[in-house]
Nucleic acid binder design. Structure first.
Lengths: 203, 203
DNA sequence: ACTTTTGTCAACCAAATGGTTAAACTATTT
DNA sequence: AAATAGTTTAACCATTTGGTTGACAAAAGT
C-alpha cells in the first residue's frame, strides 16, 4: 500500500458504489458520481474494479449475501412453523428497516437482468424450500395447521415482510403518512405480520 | 395527417415506448430502441412527444391510470369486507397476469423519482382509504371481524396480491419452477390469497 | 393550381459517459 | 539511497445518447 496507511480506498469505493447503485440502479448510476462520493479520482474505480459491470457485481453479490442467509431462519431451523414465522418476520423486518433500499435493489436488478437469476440458481448454495414444505405438510397431518400449500405459505411470508418496503413510496401516499408514521407502521408489522399469518393457518 | 392515413405513428410510438420503458425502466431505455421497435425515425419521437422525459411520463401516467381504478373495487364499493377482498384479489391478480411488468415498473420508477409520488399525491383523485378503514372498524365492532388496523389489512391485501409479480424472478428460483408452474401458482392465488386473508380476519 | 400545413427522414451536434494513459507520487525492498 | 512496486491524478479518447436541423413529400386548404 502506498500513501496514507489509514485510507482504505478500495473499501471507500465499495461503500460509495453501494450507496449509488442501490438507490439509482445499474443504469442510473454514474461512475463519476461514485468517485465523487468516495472523494477520489474516477480512474481509481477502474484500478480496483476494472469496469462498471464488475463493480456493480461486487455490490450486488454483497447485497445478496446479506439478504439470503436470513432466509435460513425459516428454512433450516428446527423449531415449529409457528415459531419460525414469528422469528423470521420480526427479524427480517428489523433487518430491512436498517437497509431499506436492499429489497428494491435486488428485485429491480433481478428483473432487469435474468442472467443474474440463472447465476444464483446454479452457483450458490441457494436456500432450499424442501425441508420447509415437508414440515408444513407434517404439521397439517398432525392437525397443528390448517391445510395450505407450503409454496404459497412461503410466498405469503415473504410478501407480507418485504412488500411494504418495496412499495414504500406508494404506501406513504395511500396512508398520507409522514416518514415517522410510516416507520411506526413498519415497527408494528414486526408482530402484526406473524399474528396475521398465524391466525390464518393455525388449526 | 400526411402520407399514409392508416399508419398511426403516434400510437405506434406509445406502444413501443411502453414495451421498452416498462421492461428496462427510464434509465435503461434508449430512444433509438423505441424508434426501431416502432419502425420509424428517431426524430419522430421528438416530433410527437418533445423529449424522453415527456414520452416516459405519457407511458407512466397511462400505466398508473390502468392500475389505480382497480383499487376502487376494494375502497369505494359497498359490499362487505369479505366480499371486497375476495373480489379484489381475484380481479387484481387476473389483471396483473395480463400485464406482469406493470407493478415492477410503477414501483421502480416511484422509488427512483420521489417527485412522481408527490405529483400523484396532489393532483389525482387518488384512491382514498378512509371509507375502507371506517368499514373495517365497524365490522370489528359488530363482531364480524377480529381486531385489525385497517391500514395493515390494506397493506396485507396489496402485498399478497402484488408481491409475487414484483418478485417473480426470485420466486421462480426458490420454487425451481418453470414458467408454466409459476403461472399455475399465480392462478391458484386468485382464490388462495383471499382464503388466506379471510381465515385470518373473520371472527 | 398553388400555398400551407403536417409528417418523415438522413445527417448532424453537443454533452455525457465508461474507460485509458502517462506521468507523478509514495511506500517498501534491497 | 537507489531501485522497485503500488497508488493516485489530470488529461484524454471513443462511443453513445438525447436532441436538432433542413430538406422533402404528402395531405389539406384556398
Amino acid at each position: 500500500m502506498a500513501k496514507t496507511k489509514d485510507s482504505n480506498t478500495e473499501g471507500n469505493i465499495l461503500a460509495s458504489a453501494e450507496n449509488i447503485f442501490q438507490s439509482k440502479g445499474m443504469d442510473g448510476a454514474r461512475m463519476q458520481e461514485i468517485a465523487d462520493k468516495a472523494g477520489i479520482n474516477k480512474a481509481m474505480l477502474h484500478y480496483y474494479y476494472r469496469s462498471k459491470q464488475l463493480l456493480f457485481e461486487a455490490v450486488f453479490n454483497k447485497a445478496f449475501s446479506l439478504l439470503a442467509p436470513q432466509l435460513n431462519v425459516i428454512l433450516n431451523d428446527d423449531s415449529t412453523i409457528e415459531d419460525k414465522i414469528k422469528n423470521f418476520t420480526s427479524s427480517y423486518i428489523s433487518f430491512i428497516m436498517k437497509h431499506p433500499y436492499l429489497p428494491s435493489f435486488i428485485l429491480q436488478e433481478l428483473n432487469r437482468n435474468p442472467k443474474f437469476a440463472k447465476k444464483l440458481q446454479e452457483n450458490q448454495n441457494f436456500p432450499n424450500l424442501e425441508k420447509f414444505k415437508n414440515q408444513v405438510n407434517l404439521e397439517i397431518e398432525k392437525g397443528i395447521l390448517k391445510p395450505i400449500k407450503g409454496e404459497q405459505l412461503f410466498i405469503n411470508v415473504l410478501a407480507l415482510s418485504i412488500f411494504p418496503f418495496v412499495a414504500s413510496p406508494l404506501i406513504k401516499i395511500f396512508l398520507k403518512s409522514s416518514e415517522k408514521e410510516y416507520k411506526q407502521l413498519m415497527k408494528d408489522r414486526k408482530t402484526d405480520v406473524s399474528d396475521f399469518i398465524i391466525k390464518s393457518i393455525k388449526a
